[in-house]
């Protein structure tokens, strides 16, 4: 690096370091940190599995207490669960009638057209949001 040596000038370097720095206002750092504090957390990918377990602990405790209560209770709670007759005689016929009414709606050409337009728009929005996030990350990673 011959040219580097020509340019490298410790005397001038030291002299330039003595020049008055261009300092922003006194509250510059505070202002940035105020905004940084309210910026949403971004480091989920770095969150360790241990932390996920720790945050699930209250839910786990609550479920355990409820289960213990149900298992040790002499309340006839099993009577409140529907038997297989409920599924075969009530729920399945209800779901079938519901799907039939939807089927009639779907075979209508107006509905089909609107449905296709909405689905296509939805797909485009999803693709655009994925690409723009990736593009933004790419350019920022390159410092652009």
């Amino acid at each position: 690096m011959e040219t580097n040596n020509i340019i490298k000038d410790d005397f001038l370097g030291d002299l330039i370091k003595k020049s008055s720095p261009d300092n922003p206002s006194d509250i510059f750092v505070e202002r940035i940190m105020d905004k940084v504090q309210i910026t949403p957390e971004f480091s989920f990918s770095k969150k360790s599995f241990y932390l996920y377990l720790w945050s699930a602990l209250p839910v786990f405790l609550l479920v355990t207490i409820i289960l213990l209560f149900l298992l040790t209770s002499d309340m006839p709670f099993s009577k409140y669960f529907p038997g297989k007759d409920y599924y075969s005689q009530t729920l399945i016929p209800y779901l079938l009638s519901l799907s039939n009414s939807f089927k009639e709606l779907v075979i209508s050409k107006y509905f089909s057209f609107a449905f296709i337009v909405i689905v296509a728009a939805g797909v485009l929005v999803v693709i655009e949001s994925i690409l723009s996030t990736k593009t933004k990350d790419f350019f920022l990673s390159k410092g652009l």
Partner: peptide, 10 residues
């Protein structure tokens, strides 16, 4: 500085 903070992981 804010932009850099938000994209520090990248």
């Amino acid at each position: 500085f804010l932009k850099v903070y938000q994209s520090l992981k990248s």
